[in-house]
């Protein structure tokens, strides 16, 4: 088992003929993912990396039985791409595209929700379960099958942490990058129960950032519902209020969303909190060892 994706996942790539779409189609294939179709309106009938390209999502789904999509479509067209995917019956969509206006994302989120579909992202690295499937852009080299689950709002920082876990001889069950935008399809609170229910995950690493209150809400959930141990890290302790730190979501506004409030909430919820990202693998290894000796 794994979370949200597995060896049966049949991936559709929207925007497959673009540079990113093509590069990451190859990377997903190398990871062992079944990439069954691509969609670029106007490019139907061609192929990319041996994957057939269709003009419309409905056609691709009918022909190939795709059951998940990854969207690389440029921001001005990303909303339409997502609505088309949901309308065509897809229930898992990873939106890699960055700079999607949040007004568009509100429509995307509520449309998906009304149809029982899940969005990961936008502006996210996606989801990967080593030995199963990858839907997104997380570098293949950082992975190794194992029992640590990772949920993160960051991109590159996630790769670094996943890699660190591999370097101490451990591996990952599933890693989800939620994305750094103000409105995300899947938040910590949405993802935590999936990992808690996954028999292949022993421990959850939660990587947060300043801005918003997603980590505080995650802490409440951990305290009230979670059965598995959590190791947490929050980036942005040194960020000044009011400055946007790269991610649109990473801004401290009106004293809300500071690293301090997040770290305190997580600590009080029983999570082990790392001061620096490079401490995470050690904390994870120690905690897993403890679990085994119990």
């Amino acid at each position: 088992m794994s979370v949200l994706v597995n060896a049966e996942t049949r991936v559709l790539v929207q925007g497959i003929t673009g540079h990113q779409g093509t590069v990451h189609t190859r990377q997903m294939q190398l990871f062992g993912t079944q990439v069954v179709a691509g969609v670029t309106p106007g490019k139907g009938g061609t192929s990319v990396e041996g994957v057939p390209v269709y003009d419309a999502v409905a056609d691709a789904v009918a022909a190939t039985g795709a059951n998940a999509t990854v969207i690389f479509v440029p921001a001005p067209y990303a909303k339409d791409a997502l609505l088309e995917a949901v309308d065509s019956g897809l229930r898992l969509a990873v939106v890699v595209t960055e700079h999607i206006p949040f007004h568009d994302m509100l429509t995307m989120y509520h449309y998906a929700r009304a149809h029982g579909a899940r969005i990961i992202g936008p502006n996210c690295p996606g989801i990967a379960a080593p030995g199963q499937a990858k839907v997104g852009i997380i570098p293949n080299v950082v992975f190794r099958p194992g029992r640590v689950g990772i949920i993160s709002r960051s991109g590159t920082l996630t790769y670094e942490i996943v890699n660190g876990i591999k370097e101490v001889g451990l591996g990952q069950s599933t890693c989800i990058g939620l994305g750094g935008d103000p409105v995300v399809g899947t938040s910590f609170v949405d993802a935590l129960p999936l990992f808690d229910a996954d028999p292949d995950t022993d421990l959850i690493v939660l990587v947060g950032e300043i801005g918003g209150t997603a980590e505080e809400e995650a802490a409440e959930f951990v305290k009230a519902h979670l059965s598995k141990p959590v190791v947490a890290y929050v980036a942005g302790r040194s960020a000044p209020p009011g400055k946007r730190m790269g991610h649109a979501g990473a801004i401290i506004a009106r004293g809300r969303g500071t690293a301090e409030s997040k770290l305190t909430a997580l600590r009080e919820a029983g999570a082990e909190v790392a001061t620096f990202p490079y401490e995470i693998p050690g904390l994870v290894a120690a905690r897993l060892k403890e679990l085994r000796h119990r």
């Binding site: 993160s152 709002r153 960051s154 991109g155 590159t156 920082l157 996630t158 670094e160 750094g180 990587v207 950032e209 300043i210 980036a235 942005g236 302790r237 040194s238 960020a239 730190m245 790269g246 991610h247 990473a250 001061t275 620096f276 990202p277």
Partner: peptide, 17 residues
Amino acid sequence: IANGAGLTMATLDVLQQ
């Protein structure tokens, strides 16, 4: 200079520490 907002913020945190 870093790639990714999270990594950049983490780098600032370490420097400041």
